[in-house]
């Protein structure tokens, strides 16, 4: 659980992509703080900018992407503050995985098919000055923690492992260098139900033992409900609602969050009435004025069409 100190602070970040049709405003003025031990879920649908933010944070935006405004501050364990966007290439390389690691969606494609798991571990360790024997020891103990057969997996090629096993390998690898922040991009999306359950279980347990912070990117409200401390809903490149998980799920303030919740089927209820949100997200080359959701919103007023609402606390938390 969060102990209050901010590990990663994102202030007013905006990211654009240059395309043939024009400039896409993929992320607009997004700010959030990530506390030590906190799990922040960024939820939203495809194209809302949730993945773009994290690619921007770790300097892996494609060449067409550009961070236009904003500041990202990271606080190291020794208390030193790092201006992440100001890091040069080599400093960024060292920052990655040491301080902030990532688990990507699609576990098979995340692993080089011609290298053994061991090579991946050794490569990562060598890149950050960790000794090979120490890396192996650490990897084996992490594999154990994520309930894999450590030695077998260590000496395997990716295609010899099942989807769930590969995802757990990636989870373990993310923790190899004891980072403070782990970014997870839809880690449970392409996996089966029982596999998803085992990954969630392992993740919760690791978080408790190793106390890292997580930025969890997902379109799946149910997984977010299960593991997040804080939830931020994104729409059309903006965070439109942010708060503790119970607030956001039980007392949504934004019509879009409400719409998402009303569209999510649940198992434990009987017959249920679900609603979809009419229309589709706006074109971010030419975003609408005012609130970007107003064309789809059932509570729309004239003011919504002209004035952009700021993100503000509307309930004491």
């Amino acid at each position: 659980m969060a102990d209050g100190s901010v590990v990663l602070s994102v202030e007013d970040i905006s990211i654009t992509y240059t395309t043939q049709r024009g400039i896409v405003q993929a992320v607009s003025n997004v700010s959030f703080d990530l506390h030590a031990g906190e799990t922040l879920a960024l939820i939203g649908e495809s194209g809302c900018g949730k993945s773009t933010i994290v690619l921007g944070l770790i300097g892996l935006l494609p060449k067409t992407g550009k961070i236009t405004t904003g500041k990202v501050t990271y606080r190291r364990r020794d208390g030193r503050l790092i201006d992440v966007l100001g890091l040069n290439k080599e400093q960024m390389r060292q920052f990655l995985w040491n301080e902030c690691s990532m688990v990507f969606q699609g576990a098979l494609n995340s692993l080089n098919p011609v290298l053994k798991i061991s090579s991946m571990i050794y490569d990562t360790a060598r890149a950050h000055g960790m000794r090979a024997d120490e890396a192996k020891k650490r990897a084996l103990s992490l594999f154990e923690k994520v309930r894999l057969d450590p030695l077998r997996v260590f000496n395997s090629y990716p295609h010899e492992l099942s989807g769930g096993m590969r995802q757990r390998v990636l989870l373990a690898t993310a923790l190899l260098l004891r980072p403070q922040v782990v970014i997870m991009d839809e880690p449970t999306t392409a996996v089966d139900i029982l596999t998803q359950r085992s990954i969630i279980k392992v993740l919760k347990q690791l978080r408790e033992e190793l106390n890292f912070s997580v930025i969890f990117i997902s379109h799946d409200l149910a997984v977010a409900a299960e593991i997040a401390d804080t939830v931020a809903t994104m729409y059309a490149g903006e965070i439109i609602e942010k708060g503790p998980v119970s607030e956001v799920f039980y007392r949504p303030r934004h019509a879009y969050t409400l719409g998402l919740l009303e569209a999510a089927p649940r198992l434990s209820t009987g017959a249920e009435e679900l609603m979809s949100i009419p229309g589709s997200p706006p074109d971010l080359i030419d975003p609408p004025k005012g609130c970007k959701f107003h064309m789809r919103c059932r509570f729309v007023t004239d003011e919504c069409k002209t004035t952009k609402p700021p993100l503000q606390a509307s309930s004491p938390t």
Binding site: L60, F95, L96, W97, G106, S110, L111, T124, L170
Partner: peptide, 17 residues
């Protein structure tokens, strides 16, 4: 364009490797 290249970059691997 493969994911594992992005992932390897994210792991902070030196460009030469």
């Amino acid at each position: 364009g493969e994911d594992y290249i992005t992932v390897a970059r994210a792991r902070g691997l030196p460009e030469r490797r």
